[in-house]
Write a protein that binds this DNA or RNA. Sequence first.
DNA 1: CTTGACATAAAACATCCGTTTGCTACTATT
DNA 2: AATAGTAGCAAACGGATGTTTTATGTCAAG
Lengths: 209, 209
Amino acid sequence: MPDETEQRLLEAAGRVFADFGFKAATVRKILEEAGIKNIAAVNYYFGDKERLYEATLRFAFQCGLSQMPNPQWPAGYSPECKLREYIRLLAQHMLNQKHPWQMQLLLREFAQPSEAGAGVVRDFILPLNRLLWSILHEAIGPDVDERKLHLIGFSIIGQIFHQKIGAPVIRLVVGENEHDGYTAEVLAEHVADFSLKALGLTAPKEVHS
Amino acid sequence: MPDETEQRLLEAAGRVFADFGFKAATVRKILEEAGIKNIAAVNYYFGDKERLYEATLRFAFQCGLSQMPNPQWPAGYSPECKLREYIRLLAQHMLNQKHPWQMQLLLREFAQPSEAGAGVVRDFILPLNRLLWSILHEAIGPDVDERKLHLIGFSIIGQIFHQKIGAPVIRLVVGENEHDGYTAEVLAEHVADFSLKALGLTAPKEVHS
DNA sequence: CTTGACATAAAACATCCGTTTGCTACTATT
DNA sequence: AATAGTAGCAAACGGATGTTTTATGTCAAG
C-alpha cells in the first residue's frame, strides 16, 4: 500500500523530530520507528530530509491544530464566559493532545522558528490571538490601547504556554505528586480566575472552591 | 596563555550551543567561533564534547544567572512593592541580558532538560520560585492553599518567560514596530499591573498611564 | 505474455563529525 | 645542557548520516 507507508513515515517523523529536533533526528531512526526497511523511502517520497520536515510540520498543523476552537457562541453570550471558555479550550487542546508530538513539534518552532515553520506557526498562532483579541475587545471595551490589548492576550496565553513548555521543570519544582494534579481543567480554571480578576471582570462559575 | 583559550572556548561553545543545540553544534564550529585552530582543543581541555557542554552550562549559570535578584528589602516594605520589584528584576534580567546566549542556553534546558542540565536548571529556577512564593505568601496571607500559591507563581513567571521564549513568534504576530516597544520596563509594568490586580492588591505607582 | 511504471530492498558513496595520535615549540626545573 | 611537562597543530581514523544507485519484486494495461 503506497500511501500507507507515506502516512506511517509522516507520523514516525513527527515523533522523532519532536523528540530530537531536526538535526539530531536521523533518517534511519525515523524509518525504524515507522517499521520501514527501505532506507531510500524518505528520498523516494519526499525528496530529502528537509522537505520531509516541512511536510511533517504541515501534517501536524492540519491534523491536530487547525481543529482548535474557533467556536461559535450564541449571541448575547457574556464576554466573561467566552474568555473562560477560550482559556479552557486552549488549555485542553494543548495539554490533553492525543498525539503529544504534534504540540511538541509546534513548540519547537515556537521557540526557534525555522524558515520552513515560520509560516505554519504564524498561521496557527495568529488566528488564536485574533480570536482572543476580539473577546478581550468585547470584554474590556473599545477605548483600550491596542498594545495593551495585545499584552493582556500574551499574559493569558503565556500562562498556558508556560505550563506546557516548562512542564518538565515545573514537575521538578513542585514534585511529581502535586504536578500530577495539574490537569488541563485545574490549570484552565486557575488561569481563568486569575485573568478575569486581573481584568476586573466578575468571575462566573466561581461558586465552588 | 593557557586559561585564556579555555575561556574563549567556553564562550564560543555557549554561543554555538545556544544557537544550534547540543547535537547540531559541532566541535569544529565552536573552534572556528573561538578562533582556535587546534582541533583537539576540546578534548584536550574538557575530555569530550559532552563535558564541554556541562562546563558551558555551569559557566552560563555562574556567569550570568546566579547574579539574579535575591534582593534584601528593608523591613516594613510592602508586599505589593516587593512583588512589583521582583517582576521588574526578573524581566530585566531575562530580557536585558548582556550575553543573550546564556539565557538562550538555559531556556533550552528549560524546555528539554538534559541529564546534565537538570540539576543546574533546578538550582536556578527553584530559588527564583521560592523567593516569589515567600513574597506571595506575605502578600496574600497565610491561609492560602499551597498549590494555589504555586499556580499563581507560575502565572506570573509564565507571563515573563512567554515574552522571552516566544519573542520570535510574538514579533511576527504584532509586527516589528510594536514589538520594538516591548522593552523590559514596559513588559514588567504590564505584568505587575496585571498580576497585582489579579491578586486583589492595590497597585502602587499606577498613577501614570 | 510482455511491458512499463511503481514500490521495496540492499549495497554503495560522499561527507561530516568526534576523537585519537604523532609531532613540534615553548617553558620551567634540575 | 638535559629533561619533563604543557600547549598548539595537523593528519588521520572510525563511525554515523544523508543521499544515490542498482537490483528485485509487484501488478495492471496493452
